[in-house]
C-alpha cells in the first residue's frame, strides 16, 4: 500500500534529475527492487503508470524493473541464491537457520534516460 508513496519519491528524484541535466523528458527509468523490499511489483508498476500520466515530463516513460534473486547465509557461513523467497535449508550443512544477506531490502533508482 505504500508503493504510491515510493513512486512519488521516485518522481521527485526524476524531476530533480531533469533540472540538473537541463533535460525536458524522461524516456526510461531503471529501478532495482530488492527481494526483501516488501514491495508488490504490480502495485509499483501501477503507481508508476498513474504518475507517468500525471506529469507531462514523464508521459510515455518506460519503467524497467529488475528484481535480483534472494541470497541467504547459513550460520555455517555458506551463502546460497534462491529462486523462491523462502530460505529453504543450507545446501552444505542442511541447517534451516538462514538469514537474508544484507542489501536485498532496498529499492534503488539505477539509471535514467532523458532528453
Amino acid at each position: 500500500m505504500h508503493e504510491l508513496s515510493l513512486v512519488q519519491n521516485l518522481f521527485a528524484q526524476l524531476e530533480e534529475l531533469l533540472r540538473q541535466n537541463n533535460a525536458e523528458k524522461i524516456l526510461t527509468v531503471k529501478v532495482e527492487i530488492g527481494p526483501f523490499a516488501g514491495v508488490v511489483i504490480d502495485s509499483f508498476e501501477f503507481a508508476f503508470a498513474v504518475m507517468r500520466d500525471y506529469e507531462s515530463w514523464a508521459n510515455g516513460a518506460k519503467l524497467i524493473l529488475t528484481t535480483p534473486k534472494p541470497r541467504y547465509q547459513c550460520l555455517c557461513g555458506h551463502i546460497q541464491e534462491r529462486d523462491k523467497l523462502e530460505p529453504g535449508v543450507c545446501e552444505l550443512c542442511g541447517d534451516d537457520f538462514l538469514t537474508p544477506v544484507s542489501g536485498g531490502n532496498d529499492i534503488v533508482l539505477q539509471q535514467v534516460e532523458m532528453e
Partner: peptide
C-alpha cells in the same frame, strides 16, 4: 503514449547513472 516514445528517439537522449535509494 508509446507512439510518442518512438517519435522521441529521433531526438538526442542522455543516460544518467543514479544509484540512489528510493528510501
Amino acid at each position: 503514449h508509446d507512439h510518442n516514445h518512438d517519435h522521441d528517439h529521433n531526438h538526442k537522449s542522455k543516460t544518467v547513472d543514479v544509484e540512489t535509494s528510493l528510501f
